[in-house]
Design a protein around this nucleic acid. Structure first.
Lengths: 249, 249
DNA sequence: AAGTGGTCTAGACCACCAT
DNA sequence: TGGTGGTCTAGACCACTTA
């Protein structure tokens, strides 16, 4: 039976199943929010027991690629649901409840990747990119200024109209229109001082302390999708990081 | 068989097993680094199958309470190993490899918990506490100033001599001497400006931007153990947060 | 009622480690 | 060699969802 999968090495069967499912997911075999075949059908297709399929899917769930619903099925993870929305947005009020930000696009331009950007996006220097500047508001107050860099290759027909006309979050747009599913992020944080231009946009005085967040958003196989530099006014808000919280259900 | 466990509700058996193991771990039934009974013995003791014990331990592993080693056994997680050491230290050089910090204790005092501290430590205002100030250096350079608050109740006989005389990390001391195992942390980050005193200690100019990290360290059942406020000079270093990385093995 | 994922079991065999 | 965790299987039954 194990011959049916052939992963070269003597890797565990469930790893081979996981690998095959990941490849199908990355290839967009099923749309976000769509159901995968049932565990029984997958077991039959791969010629393994249901237990082995379950173990493979367990890991896909842990890595947030899919979501299970008892009685309904297993679904491709989507940036649709409220819980997923929150997952990559780490700015919370110093006091009070979490809010969804309102995003205003200040600039949408085309350009070329500088060497540092190219390295982080794992493309060649000079690669065509989009540069997008957004202002984020929480309860009407300007809280963060985001500068995004995307490769034009990954988002072929993107225009300012499409970007600002999205009905949902930015990552939801990536997912639904370009089949690019942001699965995790890597962030580096620093403290910096507001320059005159940024100060004006965020409504703080020049030289005010700002939190700088440099994010790389990654999709399947840790392929970089987006660079995002955020400058956050932390007078009324904070960045939060709960380590180990996800596992503690 | 299931009667043997009795968890009141109709919770899954493996959750009951997990709960019992967690209680034994929290009670210090086995010392950090010590082996738990084998899965077969636990299955026999609880009157369940090995598969059920494995599922319970799977979750304990995900929550970092225990570590499995094939062929050797399952062990109480310890702050001994290098990997564990790194897990709660998020400051990395802007360029270059991760380093362990050198800690110098600048102050060790006794005091009373203020209302905000008491709330976060979940004790009464005025509760006796320790206040400890540490200076952290990386490659000889002062990088962060840490102010810790611990309850005297949780660390009964702690003295400056014991604290500074520890052979290992601070969390290793909590674990080995007080049986308190830090399992996860919750952190809130802001940008702030260096005051004159802090500036002097960190070797920056007054008004320099600093990263402020407010941490609560938690043990079993999310009981608070330690408050820690860090002020970090991010000229040469950064705070990093890799979301979802733990799951992606 | 039919289909899905969730739990639990029992047993076989493998990979690794200590002795 | 014996003990440990790791993998894989097959099947029974439960809980939940949808129609």
């Amino acid at each position: 039976m194990n011959q049916a999968l052939e992963l070269g090495a003597v890797a565990p069967l469930y790893k081979a199943v996981k690998q095959l499912l990941t490849q199908e997911l990355a290839a967009g075999e099923w749309r976000p929010g769509e159901a995968l075949p049932s565990e029984a059908k997958l077991a039959e297709r791969f010629g393994v027991s249901i237990g082995t399929v379950r173990k493979a899917i367990d890991e896909l769930v842990a890595e947030r690629m899919v979501v299970r619903h008892q009685g309904r099925g297993t679904f491709v993870a989507s940036h649709n649901t409220s819980r997923q929305l929150f997952h990559f947005f780490h700015i919370v009020p110093h006091a009070g409840d979490r809010q969804h930000p309102r995003t205003e696009t200040l600039a949408f331009r085309r350009g070329r990747a500088e060497s540092g950007e190219a390295a982080r996006l794992r493309v060649a220097t000079g690669e065509p990119v989009f540069r997008i500047r957004n202002l984020l508001r929480l309860e009407g107050r300007a809280v963060a200024l985001d500068d995004l860099v995307l490769t034009q290759a990954q988002f072929p027909d993107l225009t300012e109209k499409i970007f600002t006309g999205r009905a949902n979050t930015i990552y939801h747009l990536y997912q639904t229109r370009y089949g690019i599913n942001v699965l995790r992020t890597s962030e580096r944080l620093r403290a910096t001082l507001a320059g005159a231009d940024v100060a004006k946009l965020l409504g703080v005085r020049k030289g005010a302390p700002l939190l700088e967040i440099n994010r790389v958003a990654l999709t399947y196989h840790d392929v970089p999708v987006e660079l995002r530099r955020s400058l956050v006014n932390t007078e009324q808000h904070e960045y939060f990081s709960d380590l180990g919280k996800d596992e503690a259900r």
